[in-house]
Simulated scan of single mutants.
Amino acid sequence: MQLTGKITRETLMPLEAYAKWRKGHKGEVIAHRKLRTVHLGEHVTVQFESELSMRYQIQEMLRIEKIFEEEGIQDEIDAYAPLVPDGTNWKATMMIEYPDIHERRRELARLIGIEDHMFVEVEGHGRVYAIADEDLDRETPEKTSAVHFLRFEFTPAMRAAIKAGASVKLGCDHTNYPAHVTIAPETLASLAGDLAD
């Protein structure tokens, strides 16, 4: 799978070629995604996306749905390509996970607005709060969604600090879910690669 900086129909593999590629490379993509996953407390998981993870997601959707028409392919690109970081930011999928359905229903009601309380804090700089769900609103007056899409936008000084090895925390300051974690060095090294100078 070739990374080109921009996902277009022309840069995706035909279904047959992807099926062959997938057999030898699926493990690499799973390891890449695992490396870029941060657990925040017991119930929130943040998956930082990349061109590779989104290319894989699109190719998987095309394979599973057996989509080969131009319009269908473009629909998948339009759905997932916006989650590729563009050099000034990190983009992520946030999942709120409660295995018990009754607990999940109760907690999603208590966590309304959580997506707006997610932050990244670069050592020596202020917090950067997530810009959440830019494609559509994912909560109702009764509950928040179990899945949100986040963008963390960084200043040039923050990007330089991250690339220079500054410590970075991921956190949430929602009243009902206060948590923060220092992003592991190996994860941070991968995420730093998403940022332009």
Rank of each mutant, 00 (worst) to 15 (best):
D100I: 08
W90S: 09
P14E: 13
I64S: 10
S167C: 08
E123Q: 14
L191Y: 09
L35N: 12
E60C: 03
T4P: 10
T88Y: 12
F152Y: 12
V84E: 13
I7D: 11
Y129W: 01
M158K: 08
E115Q: 14
R127F: 00
L62I: 05
T155P: 10
T144P: 01
E28I: 04
E134R: 11
M158I: 01
H148M: 01
T182S: 06
L35S: 07
E123M: 11
M61W: 12
I77L: 06
P185D: 07
A79M: 14
R138D: 00
E76H: 09
G27A: 11
K6I: 15
H32K: 10
N176E: 10
P185E: 07
A157W: 11
A146L: 15
S190W: 00
P82Q: 11
K143N: 07
C172G: 00
H32E: 13
L191G: 09
I73G: 05
R110W: 04
V84Q: 12
V84F: 13
E16V: 15
L12C: 09
G193C: 04
M158P: 02
E65G: 04
P178C: 15
R106L: 05
E42R: 13
G124A: 09
T155A: 15
E123Y: 11
K143F: 14
L136M: 15
D133L: 02
H25P: 01
Y129E: 00
D75P: 05
K91Q: 15
R127H: 03
K34Q: 12
M118E: 03
E97Q: 05
G41P: 08
V147W: 07
I101Q: 15
E115V: 01
L150V: 01
F48Q: 13
E186C: 02
Y56K: 04
P141N: 04
Q59G: 02
L150P: 01
E60Y: 03
S167L: 12
D133Y: 02
A184Y: 10
A31N: 09
K20Y: 13
K20I: 15
A164T: 06
F48R: 10
A157L: 14
D78R: 08
L62Q: 08
M158G: 07
R159F: 03
G171M: 03
